[in-house]
Design a protein around this nucleic acid. Structure first.
Lengths: 138, 138
DNA sequence: CGAAAGTAGTTACAAATGAAACTAATTTGT
DNA sequence: ACAAATTAGTTTCATTTGTAACTACTTTCG
């Protein structure tokens, strides 16, 4: 059994390749990977708490907190105390955050369709099915 | 476009799931992921230099160096100066390293077949084809 | 030949990360 | 009602990681 044939290794290599490649899309906008994930999550919502963002992005609460700090310092998000629960903070994109999101989303979509260019719909469908099947196990 | 639908995100989630899961197999033997990769690579060779190992495992030279230090301190590898090139070091598994490798290999193989239990050969074949296609792009 | 450039591997130091402790607010249970 | 436990989010500190500099040796080429 060769390392190259091992499932976990192959997927880890693919993951870091894809991650590095996608990073070339958002890095020019001064974002890190956690920041991009948070931005992408907020782009689909009106307002979320840090907790919600952490769950959606699968970042731990510390990474989420730090990403939010960075995004706030870049003025891409707005934070307001949640009046129902004063421990929590409602986070939403600022006007500039929305602009960045609207700029990046089509670039990321294009990146993805380019990547998938040589793969048929059937193949991709099966690929996703296998991913789901492998992910579901604990 | 939701984070959940993004290729890079899905693959990253799968990768960390698989990595964490596989780690439960080799962690009881006191190994970290880089150490396991090095061990797996050395198990298929008689003797390799640090450079060769770095290429095979896709670890950078610093991580490789550190993993080798750890494995040496655990007496799982033997290091001998390469007489043809005295900068390089020939590394091979010690008797105990071989024993650990021989113990772990079937456990890892079982882990992998268990993971793939619900996936047909055809599906897995296509999965690997898509992985290769996605990985090949720079 | 021998100076300059390149390579194998290690080390040192700065930056990123993770676990645990912490603050402040909320919920639970009596 | 209110003490104890829980939760949201941040901060601290120890560990891990990555980059760059370094040592030692080898190759290149004038």
């Amino acid at each position: 059994m060769q390392l190259n044939d091992m499932l976990a290794y192959k997927v880890a290599m693919l993951s870091s390749d894809l991650s590095d490649s996608l990073a070339t899309v958002y890095k020019p906008y001064g974002l890190t990977m956690p920041e991009w994930r948070v931005l992408a999550t907020l782009g689909n919502a009106t307002s979320l708490t840090s907790k919600h963002i952490a769950v959606a992005t699968r970042l731990d609460k510390v990474k989420t907190s730090r990403a939010l700090q960075q995004l706030a310092s870049k003025q891409l998000i707005v934070r307001e105390t949640n009046e129902n629960d004063k421990r929590a903070i409602n986070i939403s994109l600022s006007a500039e955050g929305v602009r960045t999101y609207n700029t990046l989303t089509p670039l990321v979509a294009k990146w993805q369709t380019d990547r998938l260019e040589n793969i048929t719909d059937d193949e991709y469908h099966i690929f996703l099915k296998v991913i789901n099947s492998l992910s579901q196990q604990k």
